[in-house]
């Protein structure tokens, strides 16, 4: 009988783990316990923040707006209204900047164009070859997007693989003999790959990059640029992410790929605190 008891205890211990895979009830409890934290996290940190996402909390004035049900014809009419409101805000912003004495940037994502304007005149237009926009943009309702886009954005800081102003320092020669020795040949054009990050107010980051991949000699420059980029927008710690999963203070990044010459011209042309009119 003693043997039977010992065998039973051993069997029970072994059976605890075997039961995880063979006993339906035990397996269910195990799976439930295993998934409970990830499921809670998905709901708390992913579904809720994305479903209620606003581009910049401070700009969205919490006016209570009632929702009404619409038939298909009405939906189409409201879509036209949304389109017209976007167009109105876009033109309004362009007009307000045209009255100022500065060079500014106009990005029209639906029409795939980036323009530099001076006093209402488009002096440079570039075709956007590819756009990689933050997925969250598609989530933002027009009611939240509209106030966010209703004023021009202002450039706060910028970063690029090329210098903004390519200054060459030259010491004046002491006499004509020294002057003759100095090379009068212009420097060869800078062909470094152009990757730029423009950090605007209201959590907007626009990356204007040239099409193509860096070549080996550019790897160091590109790596330095990427390192600086992560310094500019450091990734929050896991605890900070958990405490504030709401995405309102996360930047919205729109990456625009243009030709090398356009990327260079745009980056060099825009002033340090330029304004941006954006249409999405």
């Amino acid at each position: 009988m003693e043997n039977t008891v010992e065998t039973g205890q051993k069997y029970k211990k072994k059976n605890f783990f075997v039961g995880l895979f063979t006993n339906l009830k035990q397996l269910s409890v195990f799976i439930l316990a295993l998934l409970i934290i990830p499921i809670l996290l998905v709901v708390y940190a992913i579904i809720i923040p994305t479903a209620s996402y606003k581009p910049a909390a401070e700009l969205v004035n919490g006016k209570a707006v009632t929702s009404v049900s619409l038939d298909n014809a009405q939906k189409e009419e409201v879509r036209t209204i949304v389109k017209l409101e976007k167009e109105r805000d876009f033109e309004n912003n362009r007009l307000s900047l045209a009255n100022q004495d500065s060079i500014y940037l106009v990005i029209n994502v639906p029409e795939r164009s980036i323009a530099i304007e001076i006093k209402g005149v488009q002096v440079h237009t570039a075709t956007i070859l590819r756009t990689e926009a933050d997925q969250k943009i598609a989530l933002i309702s027009h009611e939240h997007l509209s106030p966010w886009l209703s004023e021009p954005f202002v450039l706060k800081k910028y970063l690029a693989t090329i210098p903004k102003i390519p200054i060459v320092i030259k010491e004046a020669p002491k006499d004509t003999i020294e002057a003759q020795k100095l090379s009068s040949k212009p420097l060869p054009p800078d062909s470094t790959i152009v990757l730029t990050s423009l950090y605007f107010d209201r959590n907007l980051v626009i990356e204007i990059n040239q099409d193509g991949m860096p070549v080996e000699r550019e790897f160091a420059t590109v790596n330095a640029y990427k390192a600086k980029k992560s310094e500019y927008l450091p990734e929050p710690t896991n605890i900070a992410k958990l405490l504030n999963p709401g995405a309102s203070d996360q930047p919205l990044t729109i990456k625009l790929i243009v030709s090398a010459s356009d990327a260079r011209s745009i980056y060099r042309a825009i002033p340090s605190h330029t304004s941006l009119v954006l249409k999405l």
């Binding site: 992913i46 994305t50 879509r79 949304v82 997925q135 989530l139 309702s141 009611e143």
Partner: peptide, 17 residues
């Protein structure tokens, strides 16, 4: 969040407009 955003994006905002 990015991946989920791509799935749940819709036009429910029209009714608010």
């Amino acid at each position: 969040q990015q991946i989920v955003s791509g799935f749940i994006a819709g036009n429910s905002s029209l009714s608010y407009t």
